[in-house]
Design a protein around this nucleic acid. Structure first.
Length: 369
RNA sequence: GGACGGUUACCCAAGCGGACAAAGGGGACUGACUGUAAAUCAGUUGGCACAGGCCUUCGUUGGUUCGAAUCCAACACCGUCCA
């Protein structure tokens, strides 16, 4: 019985924006939520203590990468992902579907699954829906994802074929699941094509997953296209299940998509930008490497309450970047993740307060200035 | 005092008669990054026009040559060795 473990309660709604709670065996996830990405069972440059202090409620790990190294069987042997990485909060594992798309040079897709070459040692491997689920069961995350195929967003023929295959694979994933303490989410595909998205949302809804995801967005399409797809899909996806927009995004995207009824987000951006010297703030992006900050005594953001902004100046952070010190990536990751988590907390509160529209428009206005 | 070797743009360092405003690093500056093969990648780095265009540079001064960072002479400085 998956029911007792995975209940989504929508506690408040303001327009299409929702505030709720998704209950998992490792804790409740308040929504809307942003999940930092820890592909290799680590949110790059941060300790789990940092994540606790940031009050991260959900983190991601990746099936494809952990299968290749250190191996899902090894992680199972070590007590599962939570114990292995010493994180007792909720974890979501992506199925490896995105890697099929992003590492397309070394893979071959057929009806049954995907054959791909390991980037680590060149050896050949095969993922099928059944294997992806088996690996994810070994890893033991709270939320696991159906094995999907993320297509080129503008290729109609390919998008449709990938979508149909994703549907058949979703059924197989559901059939393959044997653990009841993991919530399996289905994934809607369909590129930038309204009719495909509609078909996909209807099909995935019919499989009655405990949560639903939208995949294949933010991979090169325009913002209006992305927003339109979300609106079409969310009009169909059930209201009593969480909606997860995969791989998004920026503060703008999060506001725009919560507005359209998305509950869960994940993105590499805060940590990747951090390692690449950029700070995400409520006023936009700042490249902390820029010479203008060399003698700037202020924190990244004067209104930010994160550890980094409470203790360090722009000048110091720039110095760390210039010196190639890894602390720069850590301090900026703390700040960037804090920025996004703080944003979703504020959005949630605004929904409870019935102030979502004014909060969102005010926030976006400041962001673009 | 003598014998060699050296002096190239912010730094290191190629170049040894024309295709050299001058390779390659480093540094600096700027930009990109959205289910992470990303502490990565890209561009700029003499000046000015910023499309091929022009001007000033390779220790200094003078010379050879149609033409010099590249050859010659003198000088200056830095190395190593010999007195």
């Amino acid at each position: 019985m998956a029911e007792p473990h995975f209940i989504f309660e929508c506690l408040a709604q303001d327009g299409h924006a929702r505030a709720g709670v998704f209950k998992t065996p490792h804790g409740d996830i308040p929504t809307p939520i942003f999940a930092p990405v820890g592909t290799q069972a680590t949110v790059k440059s941060l300790t789990q203590q940092h994540l606790k202090e940031l009050d991260a409620k959900l983190i991601l790990a990746n099936t494809y990468h952990l299968y290749l190294r250190p191996g899902d069987d090894l992680i199972a042997e070590m007590g599962g992902l939570h114990q292995f990485m010493s994180w007792d909060g909720p974890i979501l594992t992506d199925s490896g579907g995105f890697q099929v798309f992003s590492l397309s040079d070394t893979r071959k897709v057929d009806e049954d699954g995907v054959t791909f070459k390991s980037y680590l040692d060149g050896s050949m491997h095969r993922f099928t829906p059944e294997i992806s689920i088996a690996v994810q069961e070994n890893l033991g995350a709270d939320i696991i994802m159906a094995f999907d195929e993320c297509a080129e967003p503008y290729d109609r023929t390919y998008s449709e074929a990938a979508m149909q295959r994703t549907h058949r694979w979703a059924e197989r994933c559901k059939m393959a699941q044997s653990r009841e303490d993991q919530a399996l989410f289905g994934i809607v595909q369909g590129g930038v094509f309204p009719e495909l998205r509609k078909t996909s949302a209807e099909f995935i809804t019919s499989l009655d997953f405990p949560g639903n995801a939208i995949g294949g967005l933010s991979v090169g399409e325009t913002k209006p296209e992305m927003h339109a797809m979300i609106e079409i899909v969310n009009a169909i996806l059930p209201e009593d299940k969480p909606r997860y927009l995969m791989g998004v995004g920026t503060p703008q995207d999060i506001v725009e998509c919560v507005k359209r009824g998305i509950d869960i987000f994940d993105c590499v951006l805060p940590t990747r930008l951090a390692r690449h010297s950029a700070a995400m703030s409520d006023n936009g992006r700042m490249n902390m490497m820029n010479a203008q900050y060399a003698r700037d005594e202020r924190p990244i953001s004067e209104t930010c309450t994160c550890y980094t902004c409470q203790n360090y100046s722009r000048a110091y952070i720039r110095h760390l970047i210039q010196s190639g010190e890894m602390l720069a990536g850590t301090l900026l990751s703390i700040h960037n993740i804090h920025t996004l988590l703080n944003l979703v907390r504020n959005l949630r509160q605004a929904i409870f307060d019935g102030q979502f529209e004014s909060f969102a428009s005010h926030y976006l206005k400041n962001l673009y200035e």
